[in-house]
Amino acid sequence: MMLLAWILGPFCCGFVNPAAAAPTAGRDASTFVIDSQPLHDALQAYSRASGRSVLYDAGQVAHLRSTAIDGSLDPDAALTALLQGTGMQARFASTGAFVIVPVEPPTSTEARGRDGAALHAAFYGRVQRVATSILCADAGLSIGRYRLAISAYVSGSGELRRVKAAAQGHAELEPRIEASLEGARLEIEPPPALDQPIVLLVTQQAGRLKACAS
């Protein structure tokens, strides 16, 4: 049984762990009061208020300001309002977690077509296999026992570069994870029009991936 779930996509990560937050149940309306401020700070405030984890590229939001929100809103509507006018949008990666990425031109995904989608699927599958193999080889990383987000750029020759990791509750492991994956060779070139950076989200499970057991 596979204990580790990967979600791959064109996202980068800054990780906010709202440990002290009271999670918002479902999509029920709650009162959100968040002033207009640097978007980085606003996202952290939203994360604490909603109980949701946030993935984003700190560099992409560094010079952006949020829109103020004040009222009774469901969490999705509150986030949409917060991002209004920033040129960024939210994509939900899983229950209770979302990623912030630039708004894409409407035709960017459509232009890939069916063949392009197949190339991307094959590429992401290769990334998953390579990353799993590398991380599982280090038993000290305890992969699958905590929430993990990894972002990376892919060079033209198919190597992982500028790897960043966010390990929930295990920040001490992040440099080790980054060093393990930095320069990893995928033995496959990235497909055309690959949105970068890509991100791998690893969900917390009761044990480790079956492939890590040996």
Score class of each variant (00 low, 15 high):
Arg185Gly: 05
Ile177Asn: 07
Lys210Met: 13
Cys136Trp: 03
Ile134Lys: 09
Cys13Trp: 01
Ser157Arg: 13
Ala131Ile: 10
Glu178Ile: 06
Gly116Gln: 07
Glu178Trp: 04
Leu200Gln: 07
Asp115Arg: 11
Gln168Glu: 14
Leu160Ala: 03
Ser36Leu: 04
Ala167Thr: 02
Leu39Ile: 00
Ala77Gln: 08
Ser180Thr: 09
Ala122Asp: 13
Gly156Ser: 13
Ala193Val: 05
Ala171Lys: 05
Thr107Gly: 06
Ala117Leu: 14
Leu181Ile: 11
Phe98Pro: 04
Gly116Tyr: 02
Ala166Ile: 04
Pro105Val: 03
Ala184Lys: 06
Ala149Phe: 06
Leu209Pro: 04
Ala97Ile: 12
Met88Ala: 01
Cys212Pro: 00
Gly169Phe: 01
Ala166Cys: 15
Ala29Cys: 08
Pro23Ile: 08
Val33Ser: 15
Arg145Gly: 11
Thr31Gly: 04
Ala21Pro: 07
Leu4Lys: 07
Cys12Glu: 14
Ala77Leu: 05
Arg208Trp: 00
Val54Arg: 00
Arg185Val: 10
Thr203Arg: 09
Glu159Ser: 13
Gln196Cys: 04
Thr107Met: 09
Ala167Val: 10
Gly14Tyr: 06
Ile188Cys: 06
Asp35Ile: 04
Ala149Lys: 03
Gln205Val: 00
Ala25Tyr: 12
Ala179Asp: 12
Ala149Tyr: 09
Ala179Cys: 04
Gly144Tyr: 07
Ala179Gly: 07
Gly144Cys: 00
Pro190Ile: 02
Leu73Tyr: 10
Ala68Met: 05
Val33Ile: 12
Ala166Pro: 03
Leu200Val: 12
Gly207Asp: 11
Leu43Ser: 04
His63Gln: 15
Gly183Met: 08
Ala49Phe: 01
Val16Arg: 10
Arg114Phe: 08
Arg48Val: 10
Ala78Tyr: 03
Ile150Asn: 08
Leu55Asp: 11
Ala139His: 12
Val103Trp: 01
Ala42Asn: 07
Tyr153Ala: 13
Ile150Ser: 01
Ala29Ser: 12
Thr109Phe: 07
Gln204Pro: 01
Asn17Trp: 10
Val33Gln: 15
Leu8Lys: 06
Thr24Ile: 15
Glu174Lys: 05
Glu104Tyr: 00
Asn17Tyr: 07
Gln196Phe: 01
Thr132Lys: 11
Ile69Ser: 02
Pro106Trp: 04
Ala213Ser: 14
Thr31Ser: 13
Val61His: 02
Ala206Ile: 09
Ser47Thr: 07
Ala117Tyr: 08
Ala81Asp: 00
Ile150Glu: 07
Ala97Lys: 07
Cys136Gly: 06
Thr24Ala: 15
Gly59Trp: 08
Glu159Pro: 00
Thr86Trp: 05
Gly183Lys: 08
Arg52Trp: 14
Ala90Leu: 05
Ile100Thr: 01
Ala213Cys: 09
Ala97Asn: 04
